[in-house]
C-alpha cells in the first residue's frame, strides 16, 4: 500500500489549502477566516498551542504543510467550543481542529506519543468494542502508555483518587474483566464496518 502522505504530496503539490478543503472535516471553511484572533484569545489552553487556530488557518493558506500537520497544537483542543461561539465568521473551529488532528494522524505526521492522540485512539477503540465506555480500562490504558513501570507509578500517584471513587461507588474494579456493554455488539460492529466501506467507496478517510 502506498504511503498516504507521499500520495497526498504528489496529488496536491503546493496547494495545501485545497488539500485541507478536500480531506479535512469542515476544511472548506478555512478560507473564510479573517484573521481577527478571537479564537486565539478564547482558548482555555491557548498558551500551550504552538500555533493558535488563527495562525494555523493562515499557515494552511501559506502552504506550510509540514509545520501544520506535525504540530501538537490541534491536540490541545479541549472541545470547549468557546472559539466556535465567538468567531465572527461562525467557523466551526473546534471541528476543524479535530479534523486537522485526525488528518495528521491518518498521514502518520502527528507527533508520536502525543498523549491526547493516544487517548483519542484508545477512547474510540474502547467505546466501539462493546458499544459503551469501560472507564477503568480506559484509565489504565492511558496510564500504561509509557510502559509498565511508568504505568504503575502513575497508578500509585493517583491511588487516593481511585480509593475515593471506589468508596463513593463511582469506580468498579471488576470492570477490568467485564464492564457495561451493549447487547447487540455484533450489530454495532457490522454497522461500523459498513460505515467504513461506505467511506472507502466514496474515497473518504476510513477508520
Amino acid at each position: 500500500m502506498s504511503d498516504p502522505n507521499v500520495s497526498a504530496v504528489e496529488q496536491y503539490r503546493n496547494n495545501f489549502l485545497r488539500e485541507v478543503e478536500e480531506n479535512v472535516d469542515e476544511g472548506q471553511w478555512v478560507k473564510m477566516c479573517m484573521q481577527c484572533g478571537v479564537c486565539a484569545g478564547s482558548c482555555p489552553l491557548g498558551e500551550h498551542w504552538e500555533h493558535s487556530p488563527q495562525k494555523l488557518f493562515m499557515m494552511i493558506r501559506a502552504g506550510k504543510r509540514e509545520a501544520v500537520l506535525s504540530t501538537n497544537s490541534m491536540w490541545m483542543c479541549t472541545s470547549c467550543y468557546n472559539c466556535v461561539v465567538r468567531c465572527p465568521r461562525q467557523l466551526p473551529i473546534t471541528q476543524i481542529m479535530h479534523g486537522l488532528a485526525a488528518y495528521a494522524h491518518r498521514l502518520g505526521l502527528a507527533p508520536k506519543m502525543q498523549p491526547t492522540r493516544d487517548f483519542s485512539i484508545q477512547f474510540w477503540e474502547n467505546c466501539t468494542r462493546t458499544g459503551r465506555v469501560n472507564e477503568l480500562r480506559l484509565t489504565i490504558g492511558l496510564y500504561f502508555r509509557d510502559g509498565l513501570v511508568a504505568g504503575f507509578k502513575k497508578g500509585w500517584s493517583m491511588r487516593n483518587v481511585a480509593f475515593g471513587l471506589l468508596k463513593a461507588k463511582r469506580l468498579n474494579p471488576f470492570e477490568l474483566f467485564k464492564g457495561h456493554e451493549c447487547k447487540d455488539r455484533k450489530g454495532i460492529q457490522a454497522m461500523l464496518k459498513k460505515a467504513n466501506e461506505i467511506d472507502a467507496r466514496k474515497k473518504r478517510p476510513t477508520t
Binding site: A102, R117, S120, G131, C182, L192, A195
Partner: peptide, 23 residues
C-alpha cells in the same frame, strides 16, 4: 433499549465523521 456511547468529543483521531454519526 441497548443505547450506545455517543463517542464523546475525543474519539476524533482514528474515526471518520460518518462512523461517529452512525453511532
Amino acid at each position: 433499549p441497548d443505547w450506545n456511547c455517543c463517542t464523546a468529543s475525543i474519539a476524533y483521531a482514528p474515526s471518520s465523521e460518518l462512523s461517529r454519526h452512525v453511532m
